[in-house]
Amino acid sequence: MTIYNREAFLDRLSERLGTPRHQMDKEPFIHRNQLPEETLADLSSDELLDLAKNTSEALHVTFQVTDQTGLPAILDEYLKRIGAGQLILPTEPDQVADYQLQDWIDTVAKERTVKYWDPKADRATNLATSQDSMVAIGFGDYLLAESGTITVPTTPGQGRAFNFLPTHYLSIVKRSHILPRSTQVTKIYDDKIKSGELVTSNINYISGPSNSGDIEMVLIVGVHGPLDMTYVVVNDR
């Protein structure tokens, strides 16, 4: 943990600017308008869900809404559509309990290989497990209506590569966690990081499957990350 060459570097910048260093706090920074907070802020819960669905589907996302009781059937149908292959799940016991998924996991494990992103395993093991998995089913933290985005902070039980190495990806998210825009969720994370409530090295905002237009501007869906994405919104109120 070292900082190299800082003082001479910053002194030179200060000289170029013609102002002394350490003046920032004398002029508090206030945004000249509140558009990021105000845009879409007046949408109702139903309107947010509709917008999230429309935006996500425009991004080639399969978007489904279900009650808690219907979740296992939707996941069964999804896996049937994907076909054979290893399933990777996060090690998130609280989330599994919250969504009452343990019985479903036990049943699935009888039919196909089910592996976990394991906080006790090493890097190579978790990477290999993710790479070998045909499909990942993970937990999204929030869903952003405007951009069709799920947010996923990295945890010991759901690492970074979990979201990128498997071929197919499904994210489960609570309906009460649909927010209008990235502004709201970024403020939540910023506050939680500063208060110490959230300890993470990485937060992903994921909007649909990976894509590229690098060859003749032709849209290719599925480049380095998952080839397709499914969001399942679970009614929780």
Partner: peptide, 18 residues
């Protein structure tokens, strides 16, 4: 509206494996 991936990151914290 947003690209497929927008990420905030720093070095690994305790408990993470990648």
């Amino acid at each position: 509206k947003l690209t497929s991936y927008v990420t905030f990151e720093k070095g690994q914290v305790a408990g993470e494996t990648d």
